Amino acid sequence: MPGCERRVGQGSEGDGVLLAFDPDGGCGALDDAAERARVHRPSLPSLRSVREDEVDRALTDEPFDDLVEPSGVLLVASDGGQAVGCAGARFLGNVAELTKVFVSPTRRGTGLGAALLRAVEAACREQGVAVLRLDTRAALAEACALYERSGFERVAPFNADPYADRWYRKVLEP
């Protein structure tokens, strides 16, 4: 992968090393990568083949090119050079939207998702974010349970996303 990598944490029992990437290759910007992460577009494993038009539509509907400082952050969990998870946040003043949370099925239940959330929360605090929020679907029961265990509380809808049926927020302590 291009750029400089810094280890900023790991999942339970050493599974999955959490990395932050600086696509420009300069490590100086990553002195504290948990708080100042910048990334390239990660290549994540797929559970089924995806058509090119599906990828184009997803990138249009769910952009992530703004998940770099100063507008956001995207952290990638890697094990042996393979991406096994990610989580990002879009900075919107003193609020941030949690997005792109994914853990490979082979790594679920290892604590990696919680480690990713903690690292995103640290990056948000560094940016002066007071509230982290997200929308999701109840069908993603394991994800909802992770958010609730991590201190997120269900709230009234704050957007009109047609695919969301649950909204959460967490007040971040300084």
Rank of each mutant, 00 (worst) to 15 (best):
E5F: 11
V8H: 05
Q10L: 11
S12N: 08
E13C: 01
G14W: 08
G16R: 00
G16S: 02
V17K: 03
L19V: 14
A20E: 02
D24T: 12
G26L: 13
C27G: 07
A29H: 03
A29S: 13
D32P: 01
A37K: 05
V39T: 15
R41Q: 09
S49K: 10
V50S: 00
E52I: 12
E52N: 12
A58G: 13
D61E: 14
P70R: 09
S71A: 13
S71T: 15
L74Y: 11
L74M: 13
V76C: 15
A77Y: 08
D79I: 00
G81V: 01
V84L: 09
G85S: 08
C86K: 07
G88L: 01
A89H: 12
R90K: 06
L92Y: 07
G93M: 06
V95G: 00
A96Q: 01
A96C: 04
T99Q: 10
K100A: 14
S104M: 07
R108F: 02
R108I: 02
L117A: 04
R118S: 12
R118P: 04
R118L: 04
R118Y: 08
A119S: 11
V120P: 04
E121F: 02
A123I: 02
R125L: 00
Q127E: 10
A130S: 09
L132F: 04
L134Y: 02
D135F: 08
A139Y: 01
A143E: 14
Y147F: 14
E153Y: 09
V155W: 06
P157G: 04
F158W: 14
N159P: 03
Y163D: 15
A164T: 08
A164F: 10
Y168V: 05
R169P: 00
P174I: 07
